[in-house]
Amino acid sequence: MTETIQLGGAKETGFFPRLRTIIGRRTEGRGVILLLVILAVLAFTQPLVFTALPVTIGRIALIGIVALGLTAVILMGELDLSVASTLAASGVVVAIIPDLRIAIPAALLMGIVVGIINAFFIAIVGIASFIASLGMLFALSGLAFVLSNEVPVSIANQDAGLAFGQPLFGPVTPRILLFFLVFIAIQLFVTKVKAGREFFAVGGNRQAAYDSGIPVKRRIFTGFIISGFVSALAGVIYTLELTVATPTAGSTVLLASFAAAIIGGNYLKGGRGSIIGTLIGASSLGVLQVALFLSGVQVPVQNTLIGAILLIAVITDPSSLRAISARVRATLPDRTKVEAQ
């Protein structure tokens, strides 16, 4: 029998202690609480949110789809600011090519190419992702204007577009279906697939990932390709549903998708978070937006509220807490009194 050493607590046994540890390991806590509070209050003030559930879910899908792809990148501690303009540019591509059977693959391919270019600058050239994707943001929104000749472009096959907005079965429109497919695909990828799981390592401790032989650069490529592809898919959905591509499409998407990811407990520096969290974040935001719309609350007020919730989501991040509490104590009126002796 060999020697052993006991260093930490043993594995919890018993149902409730185990449940507690499992919950303690999740990152979505804040998102869940927020969503529950929102739903509870709405049950009294805006029951319409529930009766019009398909519309509410549609809204969540609209906000959430880009956020899902973005989360893949955020998990690695990178940012992709080009998601909204990828959406706009790919949306225009769908509209300017008359045959949808060519247009849709072309738009999706464009998303992949955008991801590859982003990743090239970040992983190979070594530019910070904030800057590289900011450059891409400008380049693509410029491209969207050029391709569309600066005017909204209607798709040739209007009927296909209008049909795309109709439910497939029950209340499920193609948008909602695609949203859930994307959710399941990315969720499985980052939880079950080795390469996806390694995103957490790339974001959590890049040096450790590198030292362990994880192909960090390849992972960064994968992440940005996911983000680009999903944004382009969103662009396709937007254009088909609207039957028109506008070069300014998705102007509110960038902030909303970051907000959904952050509220869902994703840590912007990477390594911590989850796709489910983003889904919850998008749900909170979507439900809130529907409720505020139905009540006719002015947009600036809506934005202020969403901003405040975002801020709270960020500062309730356990790791920011310590820094903030120290900061606050330091700036409070200094209680250093001089007691004469």
Partner: peptide
């Protein structure tokens, strides 16, 4: 300890969200 604290700080978040929604109700 930190987790406890974060839960405490969640309270204002929840309150804010609630007030937002009540506000939305009131506005209507």
């Amino acid at each position: 300890g930190k987790m406890r604290k974060s839960r405490l700080i969640l309270a204002p978040a929840a309150m804010l969200a609630a007030s937002a929604l009540i506000l939305s109700g009131c506005a209507a």
